[in-house]
Amino acid sequence: MKSAIWIPLFDELADPLVVARLAAEAEEAGWDGFFVWDHVRWREPVQAAADPWITLAAMAAATSTIRLGPMVTALPRRRPQVVARHTATLDRLSNGRLTLGAGLGSDRFGGEFSRFGDEEDDRARAGMLDESLAILRQAWTGDAVQHHGEHFTVDDVAFLPRPVQPTVPVWIAGFPGRIRPLHRAARHDGFVPVNLEHPDQLAEAVAKIADLRVGEPPSSYDVAVTLPADADLAAFRAAGATWWLADFDPHSITVDEVRSVIRGGTYSPAKFVE
């Protein structure tokens, strides 16, 4: 199971230079990934928030091997043609190290949809998410994109230069007990369960995704769990997790806390044997 740092870009961590230094420290300490939240607003007491794409660019320039990306970005509040440019450019800047986390997003933590007049209906956002992902998949090929959907239009536009990777891996966020997110996740490259409470939940979701992906090699699929460093990581690994993303409280996170987890080290079976 690979290990990554996963942080909100809030308050002390709203400085891209600070986060870039932390990413470099994580790489030096042997971590496999460093992922950041994508939010334009969060509820109090959070005051400051940084842009994830500019922060990721700073991280890419400060590192050379660690995987990075937004985890997750709410594609329904972003224009897919802009995300196509962002992702291809960031993948080239990082020499093929981008992973894109994608999901519906939620209004309940900061009013990120209602306060800006964006779509609040979950069903409508699901349609927007699927269309955006279809556009991105086409855009990353470098061929001209033709898309005329309910929510978005792209009329014969090629997005060049292409990413370094043949295609950017896409991990889909969703509740593990809901069938539609699992179907969506099965069509892409990974799954990030939301509000995961027990390894059994994960095992059930992983089994369902495996059924939906019958005929596809298991090694080509990732399951990323977001858990604090003191969680029972071995149990989630046994349930099917391939990545552990070290989770932090967004209302109290500090630079020192992140640095302490980085220095504490990555997941290894021997480390967590009692």
Rank of each mutant, 00 (worst) to 15 (best):
A4W: 00
F10T: 12
L17V: 11
V18M: 10
A20Q: 09
L22T: 04
L22E: 01
A23E: 03
A24W: 09
D32G: 12
A48E: 14
A50D: 07
A50W: 02
P52K: 01
L56G: 03
T65P: 00
R67I: 01
V72D: 00
P80H: 10
A84Y: 02
A88F: 02
T89G: 03
L90Q: 01
L93P: 02
N95G: 07
N95S: 13
R97L: 00
A102C: 04
G105K: 04
D107S: 00
F116C: 05
G117D: 08
E119N: 08
L129K: 04
D130I: 08
S132N: 04
S132G: 13
A134Y: 04
L136S: 03
A139C: 07
D143K: 14
G149V: 08
F152G: 05
T153S: 14
V154C: 06
F159M: 06
V164D: 02
P166M: 02
V168I: 15
F175L: 15
P176L: 03
R184V: 13
R187I: 01
H188D: 01
D189G: 03
F191W: 04
V194R: 07
D211H: 12
S220Q: 08
Y221T: 05
A234R: 13
A241E: 05
T242I: 10
R259V: 03
R263Q: 14
P269K: 04
K271V: 06
V273M: 13
